[in-house]
Design a binder for these strands. Sequence first.
DNA 1: ACACTCATGTAAGCTGTTACATGATTAA
DNA 2: TTAATCATGTAACAGCTTACATGAGTGT
Lengths: 212, 212
Amino acid sequence: MSMATVSIRQLVLGLLAQEPMSGYDIRRYLKSLNWLVGSPSFGSLYPTLRALLQDGLVTVDIVLRSDRPACKIYQVTQEGERALQELLDKPAAADPSLETFVKRLVLAANLSPSRLVADLEERRAQVSAYCDSLDRIAASLDGQNEPERRLAIDFGLAMARAETAWIDEALGRLSQQTAMESRTRSGGSAYAERRASRTPGDSAKNTPRRRT
Amino acid sequence: MSMATVSIRQLVLGLLAQEPMSGYDIRRYLKSLNWLVGSPSFGSLYPTLRALLQDGLVTVDIVLRSDRPACKIYQVTQEGERALQELLDKPAAADPSLETFVKRLVLAANLSPSRLVADLEERRAQVSAYCDSLDRIAASLDGQNEPERRLAIDFGLAMARAETAWIDEALGRLSQQTAMESRTRSGGSAYAERRASRTPGDSAKNTPRRRT
DNA sequence: ACACTCATGTAAGCTGTTACATGATTAA
DNA sequence: TTAATCATGTAACAGCTTACATGAGTGT
């Protein structure tokens, strides 16, 4: 049933897993990536956070500050982590849209290295196939002199080629990196380190702490 | 009020202006461009066509064929043309999303040459600015060794650069092309030719013609 | 007889936006 | 005191998808 489209809920959960934040922070962060992923409005962001809270996937910390208004810092629970991994581990694609791919890239820090590589390889194959199909369309348009009709196709081809090139480079970097890591045991995967340093249930959740 | 986002309605109207088609045809065409623009479902496509018809922006021709089911070929009216031009001539951007830009590219054949150039230049400026902002984020991330956090930024940069490069090339081609046209009066802009060869109100609209 | 593509349509529902409302804090 | 940024929230609505329903023609 549920397709691999990354919803706001999943995106928010993933971002919170990378770093505890407030709704406002999430919005600001996504806005800074602007063109990559459309940042959700508060009208969907805040209800999403409430839902995550009610489902026990996150907890809140109300932080009072003297200099500016109080804010609610959300933090994922163990259950939230589990739910996130379940989402990210599944097939990944089936939805060949750029949006979904980019959103998963934004959540790359939450992906296991193998899953990340698999994502990139899947995407490479999809884009490559897409490139071929656009080539065929372009060829069929070769006869008629209608430059405007070709523009979109041309653009698609250029972007698709740029994307495959980038993916190849990224895959190269990743394999090189993991090779380095297997030799020297330092400066390695943030994923592995995060996994290792998890200390769940350490602090008193839901207890507002004050910095006055 | 109305933002420059290209809705299904506008997209459909633009495609019909390029060439009379049925709803099924539109779907197939957009699906062939797949990755570029997400093709709308029939659940939104057919109601859109009905609305366009009721608003007098298009007319139907029911075409009966012996080999396969009948289909409804939609065709834009003069009023539809006018409405389309009004939409496409306005500011264009304000919505810096890739989606909107690509949709307008798909409708490039409906744009006046000057409007098309303006679109490309606007987009170039936006993407260039976006590139700078991503560069700044990348620079701020230079200290910490978290390759996963950089992935999305990196990807954004690569795509943005590819886009500016493509736009530059496209602008070059366009200026070269119009220069050619101003000298020789042939093989020129499809836009001008279409404008010239319009013969509105020629055939009996709404009269089902049969090919048995 | 069955499945498949072509072709059109409707209704229910999910998802997200717009517009509004609130309030604290800082700076003009 | 007025405007601006920070911060959270709600309700109404728009837009689109999913799932369903229908039916003609084609091939097995």
